[in-house]
Every structure is written in C-alpha cells, then in structure tokens.
C-alpha cells in the first residue's frame, strides 16, 4: 500500500514536470521567439564576398562630442567639426588645436592654401589654417540646410539640401549664383533630395561631381552648373546604390575614383571614375545595423577616414 502511494506520487510529479516542460516549449513569451512567417531576409544584401573587401580597419579615434559634423583630410592633417568646435590633429591622433565655432557646424573643406571652410546650417565661414575666422557669409534663407562643401581654385561650391541647390561663392565670401541641376531634358527635375544627404566634390582634374541622391547618381557639372555627364546605378546589390538618398557621402581619390558611403545598408565602397564598383572598404557588418552613413574623406595615399556618427569614432581604413 505504501509503495503504491509512492509510485502514484512520483508519477504525478513526472506528469507535472512534463506539463511544465511542454508548456515552456510551446510558450510564446518574448525570449522564446518562434520563427517569423513574414520575415524579410536582407542578410543576402548585407553580406559581402570577402574577396571584394580589400581594406582593413587599422585605427580609430574617439571623438569627445555629442554630435559629430563632418571630416576632411589634407596636408597630413585630419580636420573635424563636431558640436560647435573645430578640431585639427595629425594622422597619429595628436591634436594641433581645437577652436570654438559660433554654432554647430555640419561640414568642412580645406583649400589649397590650408584655409578651412566650415558649413553651418545656412551659412559658411572661412577660417585661417589656425582656426581664426576670416569671414562669414550672410545666412541663406530659412529652408537652407548646408550639407557639403567643395572648393576649386577661387570658387566654393555649397550643397544645400533644404533648397535642393548648389550655391557658388567666391573665396572672398561673395555669393555668385545657384543651380538646381535642371536641364532641358524631359523629366529631369534636378536634384532630388528626400532627406538631408547631399554631397559634392571636386576631382583632382577639377571636375565638379554632385550626388543626386534621389536618382542614386553621381552627376558631373561644369562650374556654372550645366550637366555634363552622370553615372547611375540603381541597385541594392553591392555594385550599385539602393535605398533612399544614396550615396549619402562621397570623396574623390587622386585617380578620380569615388569613395562612397551609403545609408540604410551602411557600407563604404570605392567606384571607378567610370562608375563600376572597384572595391569594398567596409561592409555593413562593420556598422550598426540601423546606423547612419559615415562621412568619408580620403588622403593622397588612398587611406580612408570614416566619421562613424553612431560610435562617435573616426575610423581609419587602409589597403590590406
């Protein structure tokens, strides 16, 4: 009789344990996710053939700022604007100086004479190589959102995402004119800027290249704003530019190749002067999945400096 009770008791315990285990197995609590029947698999787009990646990250520098703005490299120096200051340091990370700015800066460019042009929301300023203000332009209208700068001889090109236009200034700070990338070709609406990503650059040959992010294209303009040619490759695959507003940032290498940085699926690549993909600098797994596209700058040796807004780092990528 006693044994029967013990057996019954043990059987009951086993049943209870089984119920708990099965219940737990079938549970849909947050940490026991069943497969998502509606899963959109983008791993294929995020993964990159390792043979295409010919750069490696060699160094990075932490930025002491709440909001990084832009980066430029020239003459062996790294120039950074973040919050409301300008910081200049050498490639080894040793600071030359840090100067306050009148407001938050968003982009910058360095002239051939090592002067520094800084872009604020709706105005630009020229600073001496030591960071002292030489002049500051009159503010543009309220819609202006200056996102990038380029300089060619005595002309400064200013990308204004808010007005969807490129403004020209003289090196003395005088406004010259603006162009919106429109042509007589039917259906050409000029610059399509769905979000505040609008970059431009001047190649070593002196050609002005402007990103038309809504069209995923790089457009070559004469200095006075006439479209000369364009490179367009709409694709989410590694060879092209997909998503909205890409490439988000560019810089131009000594051989005319384009260093491009994309948002959405964040990645840095190099494209030939003819537009074909040359190599991958940093694949998406190097960045936060929902991160921002890093600003990019390239030096004379092809070393790429990426301003990682999510990690607050300047990340340096060198050829393997």
């Amino acid at each position: 009789m006693k044994k029967t009770v013990i057996y019954l008791f043990l059987s009951l315990i086993i049943v209870v344990i089984l119920v708990i285990v099965i219940g737990d197995f079938r549970s849909t609590r947050p940490d026991r996710m069943s497969g998502n029947p509606y899963e959109l698999d983008i791993d294929g787009i995020r993964s990159v053939d390792p043979d295409l990646i010919t750069y490696k990250e060699t160094k990075n520098y932490k930025i002491d700022a709440a909001q990084a703005g832009g980066i430029a490299v020239a003459g062996g120096k790294i120039f950074l604007v973040a919050d409301d200051f300008l910081q200049v340091f050498d490639y080894g990370g040793k600071q030359y100086f840090r100067e306050p700015l009148p407001e938050q800066a968003r982009c910058l460019e360095v002239t051939a004479t090592n002067d520094i042009i800084v872009g604020f929301r709706n105005s630009i300023a020229l600073l001496s190589p030591e960071g002292e203000e030489i002049w500051r332009s009159e503010p543009l209208d309220e819609r202006a959102v200056i996102t990038a700068l380029a300089v060619k001889n005595s002309t400064i090109f200013v990308a204004d995402a808010g007005n969807r236009a490129v403004h020209r200034y003289t090196i003395d700070g005088k406004y010259v004119d603006s162009f919106e990338g429109k042509t007589r070709i039917e259906g050409n609406h000029g610059f399509i800027i769905p979000s505040p990503y609008f970059d431009l650059g001047v190649s070593p040959d002196g050609e002005l290249w402007v990103v038309n992010p809504g069209k995923h294209s790089l457009e070559n303009y004469t200095d006075d704003g006439n479209l000369r040619s364009f490179l367009e490759n709409i694709s989410r695959e590694i060879e092209g530019f997909g998503g909205c507003c890409n490439p988000a940032h560019i810089d131009i290498m000594a051989d005319g190749s384009f260093v491009t940085s994309e948002k959405g699926v964040v990645r840095i690549k190099i494209h030939e002067p003819s537009g074909e993909l040359s190599t991958v600098v940093a694949p998406p797994d190097k960045f936060r999945e929902d991160g921002e596209a890093p600003d990019v700058a390239v030096d004379e040796e092809g070393i790429i400096y990426a301003l990682d807004y999510d990690k607050n780092l300047i990340r340096i990528f060198e050829p393997k």
Binding site: I42, S195, R236, E237, C244
Partner: peptide, 15 residues
Amino acid sequence: LCGYCDLCGGYFIPG
C-alpha cells in the same frame, strides 16, 4: 518622411 522613390525598399522584394 517618404522619398517617393522608384526603388522603394518597402514595396519591392530584394532582387
């Protein structure tokens, strides 16, 4: 917030 894009990531399957 929409870019009114032709290649819409929300509309088209990858590839």
